[in-house]
Simulated assay, not measured.
Amino acid sequence: MEQKRKEIIINEIKYWKQTRLLPEQYCDFLLALYTEGNRDDIEQPTRQVPTWAVRVTVAMIGICLPLALLVIYFTELSFVLQTLILSLFVIICFIAVRFFVQNKMLTHMALIVGALSLLLLSIRVSDFYFSGSTNALAVAVMFNCFVWLLIGWRFSLMYFFISGVVGIILLISSFFI
């Protein structure tokens, strides 16, 4: 049988299995038959993540950014405590990204909140150590723009890539205008 024809049949059987048009055992048998026992190209079933774990993770991420803003702008906490709390928020967001990527789930919210928390953290640290220095602030923002470019390239997210490019262009143009 032609290879192209086999691929069409295999894709159709996979579709039947996914939509449950045929029982799973029948689909597995047909796939084994048409792939001649070579089951490397057949995707293994992914493990299901409990819905409570997803909800808790999304709730934690959704709370991180408002709490970060609250900690920075509306409390009289020391710089060290503010930095530790913001660092914790960034770590939580990027652990959540890793969790979502491993389970092939939506990562956008965790990436956005993590990137904004990192921006807040770097601006706060720059402002504390180099008070009033626009060059240090520009370096911190440039660092964040490069992180956004990296995230956009790594996860193929155009909005992160565009944000990084636009941020760099605006930052460079602000020094020359």
Rank of each mutant, 00 (worst) to 15 (best):
S133G: 04
N135T: 13
S131A: 11
F100S: 05
L106D: 15
I123F: 06
L111I: 10
Y129M: 00
T107P: 04
V101L: 13
L111T: 02
L118V: 06
S133Y: 01
S126G: 15
N135A: 11
A115E: 10
L111W: 06
Y129H: 03
Q102I: 03
S122Y: 03
F100D: 01
L106G: 04
F99E: 06
G132S: 05
T134V: 12
A110I: 09
L118I: 06
F130G: 01
L120I: 10
A136E: 07
A138M: 08
V113G: 02
F100G: 00
L116P: 02
M105V: 06
A140F: 04
F100N: 09
S122N: 07
V101P: 02
I123L: 14
T134A: 06
F99G: 05
Q102P: 00
L119N: 07
I112C: 11
K104E: 15
G132V: 02
L106W: 09
F130V: 01
V113A: 09
Y129P: 00
L116K: 05
V139Q: 00
G132E: 07
L137H: 12
G114L: 00
M109L: 15
V125T: 12
R98C: 03
A140M: 02
F100R: 10
L137Q: 09
V101C: 04
I112Q: 14
D127G: 10
G132R: 08
A138R: 09
L118K: 03
L121D: 04
S126N: 00
T107K: 14
F100I: 01
N103Y: 15
A136T: 09
F99Q: 04
V101R: 09
N135D: 12
L111M: 13
I123M: 14
S133K: 00
S117K: 03
M109Y: 11
R98I: 03
